[in-house]
Simulated scan of single mutants.
Amino acid sequence: MTDPITTDTDRALGFTIPQRHARGRIVRLGPVLDTILAAHAYPPAIEALLAEALTLAALIGSTLKDAGGQLTMQAQTQNGIVTLLVCDYRGGELRGYVQYDAERLAAGPEEPSLFALFGAGYLAITFDQATTGERYQGIVPLDGSSLSEAAEHYFLQSEQIPTLVRVGVGRAADGKRVAGGLLLQHLPEGEDGRERLHTRLDHPEWEHVAILGGTMAADELADPALPLETLVWRLFNEEEEVRLHGETAFARGCRCSPDYIAQVLGKFPPSEQQAMADENGVIFVDCAFCATKFPVPAASEIVT
């Protein structure tokens, strides 16, 4: 009897290379990704797009030191097939969805370009710090070949940190989606780096790290049979020291609930609630993230 194949999914692993002044994070999504995608039955091109976006959210969001902090990624379009893409990360939980024009998608090629999907669109990455209440956002145009390339531009433009991002999206043996990602960053002033605006770009050791990171293939990142530690070893086994740390487990997280929906609707006066209700006096609210329908009885108007 052969041993079952071990799968390594739904987690992230952080690492640093002290002598190269670099840090990295590698992630792989499996069942969590499949659960999020299955809620909407997306066509393959949209499925792959959201899989890439969720992988980026996992890569970047899991670097937050604030346990209650949130990362939100939003891509909007100008005359593209996709009208809105949103995904976020908070405390290991991921969620996301895509709005798109099904007719235009069906009329185009099987694998549309990023420009076909978004036109002259942009990617906004927002960090919300729960402890301090601070929020900061960076916006970059979607003028590259992938969302991953736009994420690289975000770090270079908004934070002035040389960054390499690689994402691979594939399918497991059972046909379900699997995706993996690699994030490498140059921090010349130690593992925590300096203030973002003062990070220097001219350290030669970064080129060495980036070249090694660029050899990571998409199918390796998306192969659930390859442990994340093995991928780090493949890239950097000749380095003097590589420190592993910062493991994060992922789960699908949608923050909708009947109580929350009822609380939001309760802010509307009874007359407006009645206008939203069906013939039975029930308001149906759809969650865009998990596609769950919530029936909420509308408040009755008070007759005096």
Score class of each variant (00 low, 15 high):
T2Q: 07
P4G: 03
D8N: 15
R11N: 14
A12N: 04
G14Q: 05
R20G: 01
H21E: 08
A22P: 04
R23A: 06
R25L: 06
V27H: 01
L29N: 03
G30T: 05
L33K: 00
I36L: 14
L37S: 01
I46G: 02
E47N: 12
A51Y: 01
A51F: 05
T55R: 00
A57R: 02
A58R: 00
L64H: 05
L64D: 11
D66S: 03
L71C: 02
L71A: 00
M73G: 10
M73Y: 00
M73V: 04
T83D: 07
T83E: 03
V86Y: 01
Y89Q: 03
Y97V: 13
Y97L: 05
V98N: 00
Y100D: 07
A102W: 05
E103M: 09
R104N: 06
R104K: 08
L105E: 08
E110L: 15
S113P: 10
L114Q: 01
F115K: 08
A116Y: 06
A120T: 13
L123W: 12
L123F: 06
A124T: 15
F127L: 12
A130R: 09
T131V: 12
T131W: 09
E134D: 13
Y136K: 01
Q137S: 14
I139T: 15
S146I: 14
A150D: 05
H153T: 10
L156W: 08
L156Q: 06
E159D: 10
E159I: 04
E159H: 09
I161Q: 09
I161T: 14
P162S: 07
L164Q: 03
V165P: 08
G168R: 02
G170M: 05
R171P: 01
K176M: 04
L182Y: 07
L184N: 05
H186M: 12
G193N: 14
R194G: 13
L197C: 07
H198E: 05
T199H: 13
L201K: 08
P204K: 07
E205H: 13
E207I: 01
H208R: 15
I211K: 15
G213I: 06
G214P: 10
A218M: 05
P224M: 03
P224A: 04
E229A: 14
L231C: 03
L231V: 10
E239S: 13
V242N: 01
R243T: 13
L244A: 11
L244H: 05
G246M: 10
G246A: 15
G253Q: 09
R255V: 13
P258L: 11
D259A: 12
Q263P: 03
Q263S: 10
V264Y: 00
P269N: 11
S271E: 15
Q273C: 06
G281Y: 04
G281K: 05
D286W: 14
A288F: 06
F289L: 13
A291L: 11
T292C: 05
V296G: 05
V296N: 04
V296D: 03
A299W: 02
E301S: 09
I302K: 07
V303P: 09
V303W: 13
